[in-house]
Write a protein that binds this DNA or RNA. Structure first.
Lengths: 117, 117
DNA sequence: GGATAATGATACGGGTCCGTAACGATCTGG
DNA sequence: CCAGATCGTTACGGACCCGTATCATTATCC
């Protein structure tokens, strides 16, 4: 059963969630950072810098910098891959999982409030 | 009829749309810019700097700068209010309407692709 | 008219991010 | 082994955004 959303509903939902994100200004993530965070938490590991760069269609330094920021926020960690020490594996954290969960709740809550058209 | 979305569906949807937004990197808006753009296009006019600042819970310079950027992108325009020349009225543009419409389509398309859990 | 208030814009010092290019570290294949 | 490829990071110059404070312009009210 596909998820049925009308364009007008989609826009209301998008606006309401973004308003909340702006107002709770402790979690001011850019679109790229959000995409990275959700990819790490939704897709199967392992996640590497190169793999993320390819998925997002951006260069590696972009990923490195985003990981710097997300790491500073405690939302994920980097670990050197001991099997191939050139690689860095991106791992989840408790704080990151909570942030993702909160985002999910934010979206579902606002979806409930949105009427029929 | 409220909109029913499960948390796991919400996250998938959020990720897919953000991935698309990152890949079409002509429209790299921050959360604040997105909130402003959607507010202008969804809520009834008139929109002022002060009003937007209050709705988003941020200071006026934040709005001014965001309007600078959004104006430079052609997504909206400013016009002096002739009735009270202290006010600036934020107005929609054709390009902005198209961008909003495209975002709506993006969300609805990805919603369709998302399965039942 | 003149003091006061309100509105949006600007100045400033600091931080973050960008894209390109280069770099050190590590693996691989002959 | 050693040249070459691969991986993630860093350097650099430039652009953008932040928050606070201040500014110029305009309206209001006595």
């Amino acid at each position: 059963m596909p998820l049925e959303i009308k364009p007008s509903q989609a826009l209301k939902l998008w606006r309401q969630v973004h308003l909340d994100l702006v107002r709770d200004h402790d979690a001011d993530l850019s679109a790229r950072q959000t995409a990275i965070l959700l990819t790490v938490y939704l897709e199967l590991p392992p996640h590497t810098v190169r793999g993320l760069a390819k998925q997002l269609g951006v260069t590696k330094p972009v990923i490195t910098r985003a990981l710097d920021t997300l790491g500073k926020l405690g939302l994920l960690t980097r670990k050197r891959d001991e099997a191939d020490r050139r690689n860095v594996v991106i791992q989840r954290t408790v704080a990151g999982a909570l942030a993702v969960e909160r985002l999910a709740d934010l979206v579902t809550e606002h979806a409930k409030e949105i009427g029929g058209n």
